[in-house]
Design a protein around this nucleic acid. Structure first.
Lengths: 219, 219
DNA sequence: CGCATCCCATACATTCGCGTATCGAACGAA
DNA sequence: TTCGTTCGATACGCGAATGTATGGGATGCG
């Protein structure tokens, strides 16, 4: 039921890939503006510069496109995160605080994407197969994020006690604070509170095992 | 533009109030099942046991009903919370840990309501006037919640340093962990992680000012 | 009980969105 | 270039949802 096995492995030509991609990109914009439920095939096509013929030649339903789009974008975000973490991994001397900020910068708070995700989440709560998709993604996030977080904390003389607890906490805090930031886009204080909450959480889920732990996270 | 001033203060008869309420109740169910965007006036009316005539006699659009329903339900949840906190306030001897659990029980994780809220949030991000409605509600939550949290912590010999920071953190953690609980309804571990995260946050945002603080939150 | 008012059901016209079928044009391979 | 294949535009029919206008039945009040 996943997007990778919807159809026979047909030859994907250049054109096909391009229009498909343009439809996916247009869909993100339209869904963000109108909401997925209120969006129509026509709107997506018009935005992408095609007609409905192109759509039905590439997808069978809006739901299918929604899933494909979400998987692509969330995969891309995960890749970005991975890259940022890899780049960070090289710098052995980075402080935990700097690492935190770097990670937060690597996962930008994009409001179009948030709206889409919120609806996708609600949609997934109604659809068991989508739920599995989301669960798999969350697991991937944990696998990507935790090793570096643990490494950064280790350099600060801290050890993570509850690995999965920390992973879930980070994701929850990210989701929860993202809304707040988007609701008050111009309020810098909200962003600072977000960062501080992250600091507290990282701190709470790790314990110092070396007394001269320089660079502790909290004040 | 709020619901309280949408129309002239017409005389509200018994019948009108009843059908209006039934429509609101039906709307919650339908929106939860189908998603707000995919819901139709017909579906709501059928579920409530009326026809479209009843609907257009009480509301002008699905959007208006959505707002009215959300305000009513979120207000009710806030009242529940207030009641639970009042009842808790009487018991002077309650432990902070018990208080936390009581509050968490007072704000049940209702998946129908969560789905609706998720869509409403996404909707509010597109609509400035709805955004103000949500902001007002968040403020009301803080005003209700913080006094008791501070009182409970004071009894445990702890003082809250950053009041608003804690408020936002609690809401963010609630929102973020609710999804996780709903995604894996049968996994008790998720619920425990949620509770632990709350403990950590409450702890991180408060500091002990009495050394013999019995009943500290963390182990 | 009788009356005036209000509220909801019904019917209607209209618009909108969907999915399909078909055809011309763009593309890729020789 | 030429030919076969693929892709996307156009046109069509259909069903569904909307909003309104109107009428009948319920409700409240004397």
């Amino acid at each position: 039921m996943t997007a990778s096995e919807t159809a026979a492995p047909k030859r994907v030509t250049r054109r096909r890939a391009q229009t498909r991609q343009r439809l996916l990109d247009a869909a993100l914009e339209v869904f963000a503006e109108e909401g997925f439920g209120r969006s129509t095939v026509d709107q997506v096509c018009e935005r992408a510069g095609y007609t409905r013929g192109a759509f039905y030649s590439n997808f069978t339903s809006l739901d299918e496109l929604f899933l494909a789009m979400w998987e692509q974008r969330s995969g891309a975000m995960l890749d970005d995160l991975r890259d940022a973490l890899d780049r960070l991994g090289d710098l052995e001397t980075v402080s935990p605080d700097g690492a935190l900020r770097a990670v937060l910068d690597a996962v930008p708070i994009d409001d179009a994407w948030y709206r889409v995700t919120a609806e996708f989440t609600a949609h997934a709560l109604r659809n068991p197969s989508l739920r599995r998709v989301m669960a798999a993604r969350e697991e991937a996030i944990h696998d990507t994020l935790l090793p570096l977080v643990e490494a950064a904390l280790a350099r600060a003389g801290r050890r993570v006690a509850d690995r999965t607890g920390l992973g879930h906490a980070l994701v929850a805090v990210h989701d929860g604070t993202s809304v707040q930031c988007l609701m008050e886009p111009d309020d810098e204080a909200v962003r600072q509170r977000r960062e501080e909450l992250f600091r507290h959480v990282v701190n709470a889920y790790s314990t110092a095992y070396s007394t001269q732990s320089e660079g502790a996270l909290d004040e």
